[in-house]
Amino acid sequence: MPLQTTQAYVLRTYTLAEADKICVFLTRDCGKVRGVAHGARKMKSRFGSALEPLTEVALTYFFKEGRELVSVSTCDITRSSFYIASRSYETASALAYMAELLSEFLPDNEPNERLYRLVMAALAAIEATPEADKLWQLLRYFETWLLRLTGYFPDLAQCAACQTGIEKNVSAFLTVEGSPRCLHCSSGRGAVVDTEMRHVISEIFRAHPHEFATQLIPAKRLQQIGEMNYQIIRHALERDLRSRALLKQLALGQL
């Protein structure tokens, strides 16, 4: 069986039988990969804490052409997210949402270098930004970029129906499918992306996450962008993310 070596993030694990775990990885070289880690549930497992969510690992695995699950050979920690996740329940939930989004949204076996670097940058920014309210701001950054790098984020500068440009100083409108329309083509129907939202979105695409985290953006605005993003995510997945409802309650201070 051929052996593959790559950097990877652990996205999530499922228990399998008595001692094993099924793991979903975001690998740098091969995209999303599913594998079995034999013996990972044992107390003295050779995997230790390497399979905790969003740990970056040096991964080697055996694979067989045409078989869905690879067999994890070694998995050594490069950088753990355990300290960030143990900062608070809010942070742990935010990281769980990121992991679930990556795990559900990405296709198998399609490498995406920019997306991999997005995960690195977003985690580094979250680590460097302990303020609780900035957590939601960075999540919106991550989400928006994830949609763009997977080709789901609409080009708000152009109406997809009449192909005319939508100026920065006017609102764009999104259809249920997340396709952008000008005022004329939408007749004002659909989800409004107003000029203030468009400004924040352009900042997301311009700035590094560390810099974006320092900007003062009203909670209301971030919430609107979160809603818009989630519409697109939900439409693409055709179902809800499990971590989403809890996260929303948390952000609203209801838990």
Binding site: S49, E52, P53, F82, A85, S86, R87, S88, Y89, A92, S93, L95
Partner: peptide
């Protein structure tokens, strides 16, 4: 002593 257990402990202590 894992991410979920830690999150639970954090939530409860608060």
């Amino acid at each position: 002593p894992n991410t979920e257990g830690e999150a639970t402990a954090n939530y409860l202590s608060k």
